[in-house]
Amino acid sequence: MEKPFTLFGAVGSGSVPVEAAMTLIGLPYQVVEAPTWEGPAQQAKVAGVNPLRQIPALVTPDGETITESAAILIWLADRYPQAGLAPAPDSPLRAQYLRWMVFVPAAIYSLFWVRDDPSRLGGPDLDAQARIKAATADRIADCWGMMESQLTPGRYLLGDDLTVLDLYVAVVSRWGPRRRRFYEVAPKMSQVVRRVDADPRLTAFWAERFPFFDGWESQGAAG
């Protein structure tokens, strides 16, 4: 029996696009649930593989550790090209694929370190924390809008083939300020993420790892 990958992650977190990619590839994997935002006990689960105590972190069957969601997704798609989850290195789509795979964590995902705990920058002042939440929500919406303006999607973001970029955007766009605002600023990309949401190969996966509960698309104005 093939030895499984071990993924440190959590429901609704940055591990979800990685899990979705591994599901589509057909890889055996096990998830160590570690919602690190819940405090030291959960962070300690990850400390041995990622000194930043953050998820996701992937341990391969050979014992190699890979952190950073974009890096893991790019590596998986390249390591298993038969799944067709990334443009080939010589594809004319490759440069834009890499551009946006780096853009999502650099411009958007990184802001959740602040959004998850605004006191990290705003201190105990609740008004300052509210301003930080609102400003980061605006910044995220602006970044999605900029990405929208630079893409001409087909069925998926880079054309007619699903890639890990589609999985990545489908998950990250569900975080605050959530999908309603994403739909407003990125209507073309919205058609793509809805298609990923509805992919029949992922129906059971979404139900378990990022359920579509009532009201999941909306969030308060402060985001």
Rank of each mutant, 00 (worst) to 15 (best):
E64I: 14
Y80V: 07
R180H: 11
A44E: 10
S119M: 08
P187T: 12
L98G: 04
I132D: 00
L157Y: 00
P211I: 04
P40I: 03
D116F: 05
A70V: 13
G123A: 06
T136R: 00
A107G: 07
A186K: 09
S190F: 11
A86I: 01
Q129M: 04
E33W: 07
I108M: 13
V49G: 04
A107I: 10
D142C: 05
P177G: 04
R180N: 12
L93M: 05
W37L: 12
S149K: 08
P177S: 05
D160T: 00
Q219V: 09
A137R: 00
A44C: 02
A86Q: 02
R120I: 14
A130H: 12
G176S: 09
V46F: 02
I66H: 14
D117Q: 10
D125T: 04
V185G: 09
A83H: 06
R181G: 07
I66F: 15
L121C: 05
P118M: 06
I132R: 01
R201K: 15
R53W: 00
G220Q: 11
L167H: 02
I108Y: 13
R201L: 15
P56G: 06
S190C: 12
A222N: 13
G159I: 06
R181C: 07
P17K: 08
T163G: 00
E2K: 15
A20H: 07
L73E: 02
P35A: 06
E19A: 12
T163H: 01
V11P: 05
V193E: 01
E38R: 13
V46I: 06
M101Q: 14
Q191E: 15
Q129L: 02
G12N: 09
F8C: 07
W37E: 05
S149M: 08
R131T: 02
V18M: 04
V11T: 14
R120F: 12
D138E: 13
R209P: 05
A207V: 14
A10I: 01
G84S: 05
N50V: 09
Q30R: 15
V193F: 10
V172Q: 06
Q82T: 09
L167Q: 00
C143A: 15
S91M: 00
R178T: 09
A70Q: 12
I25D: 06
A86E: 02
V104N: 03
M101T: 08
E184P: 06
M147V: 15
V11I: 10
W144E: 01
P211V: 04
G223D: 09
A44N: 02
A47M: 02
I108L: 14
K45F: 01
E217R: 05
A20W: 03
R195S: 11
P40S: 05
G215A: 09
V46M: 01
A57S: 14
P187W: 11
L111Y: 09
A41N: 07
A10G: 07
V164D: 00
K133E: 12
A130V: 02
D62M: 13
I72G: 06
L151P: 03
A83S: 13
G39S: 07
A34W: 07
G48N: 03
F8A: 10
M101F: 14
F213I: 04
A207P: 06
P61T: 10
V49R: 08
N50H: 11
L157R: 00
S91H: 02
A221P: 10
P35W: 03
P17E: 09
M22H: 03
G176Y: 05
M147D: 00
